[in-house]
Design a protein around this nucleic acid. Structure first.
Lengths: 130, 130
DNA sequence: CTGGATCCCACCAGATACTG
DNA sequence: CAGTATCTGGTGGGATCCAG
C-alpha cells in the first residue's frame, strides 16, 4: 500500500517521517486540520462550505487519510438522513499545534522568499535579454 | 508564473504561506536542505552522491527552486571544467532549524500514526470481509 | 563537471453522474 | 446528507541525449 521507499533515503536527516511530513505538505490536509481546530466538530457539508474551493472528492479523500492516520475522528450517527461528525483527535490537536508554529514561521518569512524570487527572476530575465 | 491561487483559500488559517510549506512537503527539498546543513558547502556531483536515489533532473530543479526562494546560494567559479558550489543562506539555515524541530516531532509521532493506520486498516478489512 | 532539452508515463486532482 | 464510481486532463518526475 503506498510508496514506502523512504527507508534508505534518510542519510542526511536522522529520520524524515514522511508519513507525517506529507500531511503538512498537503494543502488540503493543512486546511482541514486548521479549520477543525477552530470548530471542535463539523459535518461533511459544513466542512465543504468552509474549505472554499475543495472538491467533494478531495474532501472525502483527505478526510479519510486524516482519519486513517489518527488525526481525525469520524463519528457516524445511523440515522436518515445520514449524520457524520468530524473532529480532531488528541493527536490531531498535537499536529495542529506543531503546524501552527510552522505556518507562523512560514508566513513571517514569506516576504523574504518573495523578494528572493523577484531578485532571482530579475537576474535571470537580464541574462535572457542580454 | 506558477500557481498562485492561495489568496482566497486561507480562510481557516491566518496565512498558509504555501510558498514555504511546499518546500517542507517536498521530499527532495527537505533532503537537500538537511544535507547542505551538515556540510556547509557542496558541489553538484557531491550532492548527487549524497542524496541517494535522486535523478540528475530533480537535483537541478530542486536546487534551482531552493536558490530562487533564497534558501540556497549558488556560486559559480568560471573555470574549466565548471566548478559550482552550493550552500545554505542564512534564510536557509533558519529554514533548516525549523524543519528539524518539525521532523523531530514527526518522527516522535510516527509510531502513533503507524498504529492508527494498522487499526484503521484492520477495521476496514473486517467490514470488507463481513 | 554541470547542467539544458526532450520524451514519456504514471499518478492525481477535478468534474460529473449515481446511490443508500 | 454523505458519500462511491468513473473518466479525463494536467503534471511531476525518471530516463536519455546533448552541450558548454
Amino acid at each position: 500500500m503506498g510508496k514506502s521507499a523512504n527507508s534508505d533515503i534518510q542519510k542526511g536527516c536522522p529520520c524524515l517521517a514522511r508519513d507525517v511530513l506529507d500531511r503538512i505538505g498537503d494543502r488540503w490536509s493543512v486546511l482541514l486540520v486548521c479549520i477543525l481546530g477552530e470548530h471542535e466538530v463539523l459535518r461533511f457539508t459544513e466542512l465543504r462550505r468552509k474549505v472554499t474551493g475543495i472538491s467533494q472528492r478531495m474532501l472525502t479523500v483527505t478526510l479519510r487519510d486524516l482519519e486513517r492516520d489518527g488525526f481525525v475522528q469520524r463519528k457516524v450517527k445511523p440515522v436518515i438522513p445520514p449524520h457524520v461528525e468530524y473532529r480532531l483527535t488528541p493527536l490531531g490537536h498535537a499536529l495542529l499545534e506543531n503546524m501552527r508554529s510552522l505556518v507562523n514561521w512560514a508566513s513571517r518569512h514569506q516576504d523574504a522568499v518573495r523578494r528572493a524570487r523577484e531578485a532571482y527572476d530579475a537576474r535571470h530575465s537580464v541574462e535572457e535579454a542580454g
